[in-house]
Nucleic acid binder design. Structure first.
Length: 276
DNA sequence: AAAATTTGACCACG
DNA sequence: CGTGGTCAAATTTT
Protein backbone atom coordinates (compact mmCIF):
# COMPACT_ATOMS: atom_id res chain seq x y z
CA UNK A 1 0.00 0.00 0.00
CA UNK A 2 1.46 3.31 -0.97
CA UNK A 3 -0.57 5.01 1.63
CA UNK A 4 1.99 7.46 2.80
CA UNK A 5 2.98 8.97 -0.48
CA UNK A 6 1.32 12.16 0.59
CA UNK A 7 3.66 12.62 3.49
CA UNK A 8 6.40 14.12 1.40
CA UNK A 9 4.20 16.19 -0.81
CA UNK A 10 3.94 19.36 1.20
CA UNK A 11 4.51 20.69 4.69
CA UNK A 12 0.83 21.21 5.28
CA UNK A 13 0.12 17.66 4.28
CA UNK A 14 2.76 16.49 6.66
CA UNK A 15 1.27 18.39 9.51
CA UNK A 16 -2.16 17.15 8.68
CA UNK A 17 -0.99 13.58 8.48
CA UNK A 18 0.94 13.82 11.72
CA UNK A 19 -2.04 15.29 13.47
CA UNK A 20 -4.21 12.53 12.20
CA UNK A 21 -1.80 9.82 13.17
CA UNK A 22 -1.49 11.33 16.59
CA UNK A 23 -5.21 11.17 16.89
CA UNK A 24 -5.29 7.56 15.83
CA UNK A 25 -2.55 6.84 18.29
CA UNK A 26 -4.55 8.34 21.11
CA UNK A 27 -7.53 6.32 20.10
CA UNK A 28 -5.51 3.19 20.04
CA UNK A 29 -4.15 3.99 23.45
CA UNK A 30 -7.61 4.08 24.91
CA UNK A 31 -8.15 0.41 24.35
CA UNK A 32 -5.46 -0.36 26.86
CA UNK A 33 -6.94 1.94 29.41
CA UNK A 34 -10.39 0.48 29.39
CA UNK A 35 -11.62 -0.43 32.84
CA UNK A 36 -12.08 -4.06 31.89
CA UNK A 37 -8.37 -4.38 31.43
CA UNK A 38 -7.25 -2.87 34.65
CA UNK A 39 -10.07 -4.22 36.78
CA UNK A 40 -10.10 -7.60 35.17
CA UNK A 41 -13.76 -7.38 34.31
CA UNK A 42 -14.83 -10.37 32.29
CA UNK A 43 -14.95 -9.70 28.62
CA UNK A 44 -14.76 -11.94 25.66
CA UNK A 45 -11.65 -11.85 23.63
CA UNK A 46 -13.48 -11.44 20.37
CA UNK A 47 -14.59 -8.03 21.46
CA UNK A 48 -11.10 -6.98 22.27
CA UNK A 49 -9.90 -8.41 19.04
CA UNK A 50 -12.43 -6.54 17.06
CA UNK A 51 -11.92 -3.21 18.73
CA UNK A 52 -8.22 -3.59 18.37
CA UNK A 53 -8.59 -4.37 14.71
CA UNK A 54 -10.88 -1.45 14.20
CA UNK A 55 -8.41 0.91 15.71
CA UNK A 56 -5.27 -0.48 14.27
CA UNK A 57 -6.82 -0.49 10.86
CA UNK A 58 -6.80 3.23 10.97
CA UNK A 59 -3.10 3.14 10.46
CA UNK A 60 -3.52 1.69 7.06
CA UNK A 61 -6.77 3.30 6.03
CA UNK A 62 -6.53 6.88 6.95
CA UNK A 63 -3.50 8.03 5.01
CA UNK A 64 -4.74 6.42 1.85
CA UNK A 65 -8.01 8.13 2.39
CA UNK A 66 -6.22 11.40 2.59
CA UNK A 67 -4.31 10.86 -0.58
CA UNK A 68 -7.29 9.61 -2.52
CA UNK A 69 -9.64 12.20 -1.24
CA UNK A 70 -9.48 15.18 -3.50
CA UNK A 71 -12.50 16.85 -2.09
CA UNK A 72 -14.58 15.99 -5.12
CA UNK A 73 -17.04 13.72 -3.45
CA UNK A 74 -20.75 13.70 -3.90
CA UNK A 75 -21.15 12.42 -0.43
CA UNK A 76 -24.41 13.43 1.12
CA UNK A 77 -24.19 11.20 4.14
CA UNK A 78 -24.13 12.68 7.60
CA UNK A 79 -20.76 13.26 9.15
CA UNK A 80 -20.64 11.38 12.40
CA UNK A 81 -17.81 13.13 14.04
CA UNK A 82 -17.28 11.26 17.23
CA UNK A 83 -13.79 11.48 18.53
CA UNK A 84 -12.75 12.95 15.25
CA UNK A 85 -13.20 9.75 13.33
CA UNK A 86 -16.04 10.03 10.92
CA UNK A 87 -17.90 7.55 8.84
CA UNK A 88 -17.38 9.96 6.03
CA UNK A 89 -13.73 9.03 6.10
CA UNK A 90 -14.51 5.37 5.88
CA UNK A 91 -16.81 5.86 2.99
CA UNK A 92 -14.04 7.21 0.80
CA UNK A 93 -13.10 3.74 -0.25
CA UNK A 94 -16.27 3.05 -2.10
CA UNK A 95 -18.43 4.70 -4.68
CA UNK A 96 -21.45 6.56 -3.52
CA UNK A 97 -24.87 5.83 -4.84
CA UNK A 98 -27.97 7.94 -4.49
CA UNK A 99 -29.83 7.48 -1.27
CA UNK A 100 -33.49 6.78 -1.61
CA UNK A 101 -35.92 7.08 1.21
CA UNK A 102 -38.47 4.45 0.26
CA UNK A 103 -38.83 1.40 2.40
CA UNK A 104 -36.44 -1.31 1.43
CA UNK A 105 -34.24 1.01 -0.52
CA UNK A 106 -30.81 1.04 0.93
CA UNK A 107 -27.21 1.13 0.01
CA UNK A 108 -25.23 -2.04 0.05
CA UNK A 109 -22.04 -1.21 1.82
CA UNK A 110 -18.98 -3.30 2.06
CA UNK A 111 -16.36 -0.91 3.26
CA UNK A 112 -15.25 -3.10 6.12
CA UNK A 113 -16.09 -6.61 7.10
CA UNK A 114 -14.86 -8.82 9.88
CA UNK A 115 -15.93 -12.41 10.22
CA UNK A 116 -15.58 -14.37 13.43
CA UNK A 117 -16.45 -17.94 14.14
CA UNK A 118 -17.11 -18.32 17.83
CA UNK A 119 -19.02 -20.44 20.27
CA UNK A 120 -20.93 -17.49 21.66
CA UNK A 121 -22.69 -14.50 20.24
CA UNK A 122 -22.21 -11.92 22.92
CA UNK A 123 -19.66 -9.23 22.47
CA UNK A 124 -19.27 -6.04 24.39
CA UNK A 125 -21.54 -3.94 22.26
CA UNK A 126 -25.25 -3.53 22.57
CA UNK A 127 -27.12 -4.62 19.50
CA UNK A 128 -30.67 -4.27 18.30
CA UNK A 129 -32.10 -7.01 16.17
CA UNK A 130 -33.68 -5.73 13.00
CA UNK A 131 -34.15 -8.77 10.87
CA UNK A 132 -34.09 -12.48 10.52
CA UNK A 133 -33.79 -14.42 7.33
CA UNK A 134 -34.04 -17.97 6.18
CA UNK A 135 -30.85 -18.72 4.31
CA UNK A 136 -30.78 -21.50 1.78
CA UNK A 137 -28.26 -24.22 2.48
CA UNK A 138 -28.19 -23.10 6.08
CA UNK A 139 -29.79 -25.02 8.87
CA UNK A 140 -30.53 -21.98 10.96
CA UNK A 141 -31.91 -18.57 10.25
CA UNK A 142 -29.57 -15.66 10.02
CA UNK A 143 -30.09 -12.84 12.47
CA UNK A 144 -29.37 -9.24 11.65
CA UNK A 145 -28.36 -6.72 14.25
CA UNK A 146 -27.54 -3.06 14.17
CA UNK A 147 -25.85 -1.03 16.83
CA UNK A 148 -28.26 0.16 19.49
CA UNK A 149 -26.78 3.62 19.13
CA UNK A 150 -27.58 3.93 15.46
CA UNK A 151 -29.96 6.77 16.08
CA UNK A 152 -28.70 8.46 19.20
CA UNK A 153 -25.08 8.43 18.06
CA UNK A 154 -25.32 7.60 14.40
CA UNK A 155 -23.34 4.43 14.77
CA UNK A 156 -23.52 2.47 11.54
CA UNK A 157 -22.14 -0.82 12.78
CA UNK A 158 -24.13 -3.95 12.02
CA UNK A 159 -23.57 -7.61 12.52
CA UNK A 160 -25.00 -10.84 11.24
CA UNK A 161 -25.15 -13.92 13.37
CA UNK A 162 -25.48 -17.26 11.69
CA UNK A 163 -25.57 -20.41 13.74
CA UNK A 164 -23.54 -22.94 11.88
CA UNK A 165 -23.32 -25.73 14.41
CA UNK A 166 -25.54 -27.04 17.17
CA UNK A 167 -23.77 -29.47 19.43
CA UNK A 168 -20.97 -27.30 20.43
CA UNK A 169 -22.79 -24.14 19.45
CA UNK A 170 -20.87 -22.31 16.82
CA UNK A 171 -21.74 -19.02 15.24
CA UNK A 172 -20.43 -17.18 12.29
CA UNK A 173 -20.58 -13.53 13.14
CA UNK A 174 -20.00 -10.98 10.46
CA UNK A 175 -19.41 -7.42 11.49
CA UNK A 176 -19.99 -4.60 9.06
CA UNK A 177 -18.62 -1.13 9.48
CA UNK A 178 -16.94 0.26 12.52
CA UNK A 179 -18.58 1.38 15.68
CA UNK A 180 -18.59 5.12 16.00
CA UNK A 181 -20.53 5.09 19.23
CA UNK A 182 -18.85 5.59 22.55
CA UNK A 183 -20.78 3.09 24.63
CA UNK A 184 -18.33 0.29 24.42
CA UNK A 185 -19.12 -2.36 27.04
CA UNK A 186 -21.55 0.10 28.56
CA UNK A 187 -18.76 1.27 30.81
CA UNK A 188 -18.81 5.01 30.45
CA UNK A 189 -15.69 6.09 32.22
CA UNK A 190 -12.34 6.00 30.57
CA UNK A 191 -9.16 6.29 32.52
CA UNK A 192 -7.37 9.42 31.61
CA UNK A 193 -3.99 8.81 33.22
CA UNK A 194 -2.27 8.07 29.98
CA UNK A 195 1.42 7.55 30.23
CA UNK A 196 4.19 8.05 27.77
CA UNK A 197 5.00 4.37 27.89
CA UNK A 198 1.78 3.53 26.24
CA UNK A 199 2.33 6.12 23.64
CA UNK A 200 5.70 4.73 22.84
CA UNK A 201 4.48 1.23 22.37
CA UNK A 202 1.84 2.26 19.93
CA UNK A 203 4.19 4.46 18.05
CA UNK A 204 6.59 1.58 17.78
CA UNK A 205 3.92 -0.53 16.26
CA UNK A 206 3.55 2.02 13.56
CA UNK A 207 7.18 2.62 12.94
CA UNK A 208 8.13 -0.99 12.94
CA UNK A 209 5.72 -1.76 10.25
CA UNK A 210 6.41 1.24 8.15
CA UNK A 211 4.40 2.61 5.32
CA UNK A 212 3.26 -0.77 4.13
CA UNK A 213 1.79 -1.74 7.47
CA UNK A 214 -0.59 -4.56 6.88
CA UNK A 215 -3.19 -6.17 9.07
CA UNK A 216 -2.91 -9.60 7.58
CA UNK A 217 -1.93 -11.11 10.87
CA UNK A 218 -2.79 -14.60 9.67
CA UNK A 219 0.68 -14.65 8.26
CA UNK A 220 2.13 -14.91 11.72
CA UNK A 221 2.50 -18.64 12.07
CA UNK A 222 3.17 -19.20 15.76
CA UNK A 223 0.72 -16.73 17.07
CA UNK A 224 -2.60 -17.38 18.69
CA UNK A 225 -4.36 -20.56 17.84
CA UNK A 226 -1.86 -23.19 18.84
CA UNK A 227 -1.29 -21.68 22.22
CA UNK A 228 -4.91 -21.37 23.22
CA UNK A 229 -5.00 -24.29 25.62
CA UNK A 230 -1.75 -23.82 27.39
CA UNK A 231 -2.18 -20.23 28.33
CA UNK A 232 -5.89 -20.15 28.93
CA UNK A 233 -5.88 -19.63 32.67
CA UNK A 234 -2.97 -17.31 32.87
CA UNK A 235 -4.99 -14.19 32.74
CA UNK A 236 -3.15 -12.18 35.32
CA UNK A 237 -0.32 -10.94 33.20
CA UNK A 238 -0.77 -8.75 30.21
CA UNK A 239 2.76 -8.73 29.03
CA UNK A 240 1.77 -8.15 25.51
CA UNK A 241 3.78 -6.52 22.91
CA UNK A 242 1.25 -4.19 21.51
CA UNK A 243 2.74 -4.02 18.11
CA UNK A 244 2.60 -7.70 17.39
CA UNK A 245 0.39 -9.79 19.56
CA UNK A 246 -2.78 -7.93 20.19
CA UNK A 247 -4.78 -8.74 17.13
CA UNK A 248 -4.68 -12.48 17.02
CA UNK A 249 -3.64 -13.40 20.51
CA UNK A 250 -6.82 -14.76 21.92
CA UNK A 251 -5.23 -16.77 24.62
CA UNK A 252 -5.07 -14.61 27.68
CA UNK A 253 -8.30 -12.71 27.77
CA UNK A 254 -10.72 -13.42 30.55
CA UNK A 255 -13.83 -15.08 29.30
CA UNK A 256 -17.29 -14.92 30.72
CA UNK A 257 -18.30 -17.98 32.65
CA UNK A 258 -21.57 -18.17 30.82
CA UNK A 259 -19.95 -18.60 27.50
CA UNK A 260 -18.17 -21.67 26.34
CA UNK A 261 -14.63 -22.28 27.23
CA UNK A 262 -12.09 -20.52 25.18
CA UNK A 263 -10.35 -23.66 24.15
CA UNK A 264 -13.39 -24.67 22.19
CA UNK A 265 -13.21 -21.64 20.13
CA UNK A 266 -11.81 -21.14 16.80
CA UNK A 267 -11.65 -17.54 15.96
CA UNK A 268 -11.17 -16.58 12.43
CA UNK A 269 -10.84 -12.99 11.45
CA UNK A 270 -11.09 -11.93 7.91
CA UNK A 271 -11.18 -8.31 7.09
CA UNK A 272 -12.20 -7.03 3.76
CA UNK A 273 -11.86 -3.66 2.22
CA UNK A 274 -13.92 -3.82 -0.84
CA UNK A 275 -14.17 -1.08 -3.41
CA UNK A 276 -17.46 -2.78 -4.36
C1' DA B 1 -45.36 3.41 28.04
C1' DA B 2 -41.17 2.44 26.12
C1' DA B 3 -38.06 -0.68 24.29
C1' DA B 4 -37.06 -4.79 21.86
C1' DT B 5 -38.35 -8.39 18.69
C1' DT B 6 -40.93 -10.52 14.97
C1' DT B 7 -42.35 -10.61 10.50
C1' DG B 8 -43.47 -9.75 5.80
C1' DA B 9 -42.63 -6.40 2.33
C1' DC B 10 -39.39 -4.21 -0.43
C1' DC B 11 -35.35 -3.75 -3.19
C1' DA B 12 -30.20 -4.38 -4.64
C1' DC B 13 -27.32 -7.41 -6.65
C1' DG B 14 -25.59 -11.31 -9.22
C1' DC C 1 -35.52 -13.86 -11.20
C1' DG C 2 -33.80 -15.77 -6.81
C1' DT C 3 -31.37 -14.67 -2.75
C1' DG C 4 -30.14 -11.94 0.91
C1' DG C 5 -30.04 -7.33 3.49
C1' DT C 6 -32.97 -3.72 5.34
C1' DC C 7 -37.19 -1.33 6.63
C1' DA C 8 -40.99 -0.62 9.44
C1' DA C 9 -45.60 -2.02 11.17
C1' DA C 10 -47.28 -5.23 14.32
C1' DT C 11 -46.49 -7.69 18.27
C1' DT C 12 -44.26 -8.93 22.45
C1' DT C 13 -41.50 -7.99 26.36
C1' DT C 14 -39.78 -5.18 30.06
Amino acid sequence: MESFSGLESSPSNQIESIQELTHVQQWTDNIFEMPWLSENIEVDHATINRVAVERLEMFSITPSIKSNYNGAVNDTSPLYSLDGWSSKDVKMVKPVKPIKSKRGCYIRRSSWTSTNITSYTDDGHSWRKYGQKEIINATHKRNYYRCSHKFDQGCQATKQVQKIEDEPPKYKITYNRHHTCKNFLSTPQIFLDSTDDNDTSVLLSFENNGPSFSLDKHEEPNNGFSSLDSSYNQTSSFDYNVSHNLIMSDSSWPVSQTSSRLDLEEVILTRVYSPI
